[in-house]
Simulated assay, not measured.
Amino acid sequence: MTDSQTLSANWPPSRGDYTEFVSRFGQERADRYAQAFHAKDPVADALFSGDRSVREIMPNLREALVAGRATENTFPEVAALIEDMASALEGIDEERFERGRKVYLSIPVIQHALAVGPGSLVHTYSTPAIADLLVNTGELTVGAIKRLSYTTNWTFSLYLPDSISRGGKGFVHTGMVRAMHAHVRRVHTTRGLDYSDWGAPISEFDMLRTWFDFTYIPYKGLRNMGWSLSKEEEQDVYYLWKIVGRMVGIPEDLMDGQDDIESSEETMDAIHSVDGLPNENTQALIDALMHGFVVNANMITGLPEDTLADWTAAYTRIIHGDEKADLHGISQSLMLPIIQMNVPSVQERFDLLRKDEEALSAEIKNNEEMVRQLLNEEEPAYLNQDKAPEQV
């Protein structure tokens, strides 16, 4: 039996037909995805594969992440994770990474919140491969507001100066997010939950798909909202997220060639072809997400929740289009035509801003300060997994 025949035999049944995938996207991509459906993150999984409990591992990991390196008290499996993350920073183009950070901060924080909340997370939950996993491991809709805050917290931590350097806030948060993924896989395995229809839980493929929820999905959505970037700016943002992706455990070869929106189109088509159809779990999570975003926005702005719900639905439709919005039960919005009429003016102002170096620097500084203010200093659950009841 050839390697391709072996991979074909291991193609998860809910991922569609292997032969059809090959005809559309090629043998090389099909074989790599067949591997990625089952591959996990052995470096992070080693944290929970030995005899040490979560309550022993997590404080040791936090201490090492904050220090940015292993000490004489660091467990070997923790030291291995720290060094694997640090290897992603070797040879980094710091100037380019900084440009990517500033591209993010050139766009108002609330617009990014829309693109990553109703934009990215609607896309995240739209496949049963992820939605079923969240439900099976107890991450039900009641936790949607907190999960939205956790995602925001992590991403905000990445956009502060020197954040991903050893011991930086982004370094710490990214390491703990990676550990959280490993912990979920551990819980899933310990409970004996069946995930064979999709592959491994939080597989390499799942992590790649989620990587696009911080690159392709939000920045294509921002285009529709009037915040279109140049190709170079898109590529700088993608570069930043390639570094973060490697730190969080995504193999480099899966991200190779994904450099901007246009170069990602075929990969997104390939990913969506194996997503499966939305089910009751995807819809429940999307409904909870939309409500959670409105609740969070109300806490920040003080505006009435019904007004914010209409506003959020309008932008969700702009980001995803009516067909996908209808598929996911996004309500119609009275604000939609008004917002759409203003998109060209938003783009014009954004283009003018980027031509004025002084004004752009001031905007970046203001948005960075807002990120600092909104960064929740109450540690999210992924930083405190050892303080929760043990999950088995």
Score class of each variant (00 low, 15 high):
L65D: 06
V244L: 14
R55K: 14
N224D: 03
G276W: 11
A67G: 11
D84M: 10
G329S: 04
Y195W: 07
I330R: 00
W154A: 08
L222N: 02
G68F: 03
S14R: 12
M58Q: 15
H328R: 05
L134S: 03
P251I: 04
E280C: 07
T152C: 05
V122K: 01
T301N: 07
L374I: 06
D236W: 02
P380R: 04
S230K: 08
A182R: 02
M370G: 00
A39M: 11
A113E: 13
Q373P: 00
R52H: 11
N73K: 15
W211N: 12
R24E: 13
A179F: 01
S273Q: 05
E323V: 10
L254F: 11
D236K: 04
Q258I: 13
V184P: 02
R147D: 05
Q391D: 11
I261K: 06
M335D: 10
E83F: 03
R96V: 08
S53F: 03
R349D: 13
A79T: 04
E98M: 05
D84G: 00
P251V: 04
A144N: 07
L277S: 15
D260M: 04
R186D: 12
S120P: 07
D322L: 00
E90D: 13
H188D: 07
D386N: 12
W11A: 05
D45C: 07
S361N: 12
L336E: 15
A86R: 15
P251L: 07
T307W: 11
I145G: 01
L7K: 12
Y219H: 13
M180T: 00
R209W: 11
A88S: 15
N224G: 12
E357V: 04
A80E: 14
A39E: 15
N136V: 05
V187L: 08
R96K: 15
R166C: 01
F25L: 05
S345F: 14
I164Q: 06
Q373V: 02
S8P: 00
R69A: 15
S331T: 10
T137S: 08
H291C: 02
Y195L: 00
L158Q: 13
I107Q: 09
G16D: 09
G91S: 07
W311I: 01
R29Q: 13
D326F: 04
D45Y: 02
T19M: 01
A314Q: 09
A46D: 14
E234K: 06
Q283M: 13
E63Q: 15
G143M: 11
A362D: 12
N60G: 01
N60I: 05
T19N: 12
H181V: 06
A44K: 06
N281Y: 11
L193T: 09
N10Q: 15
N224I: 03
N376S: 14
T312S: 14
I82F: 02
K355W: 00
A284K: 05
E280M: 09
M247A: 06
M335C: 03
L383Q: 09
A182F: 03
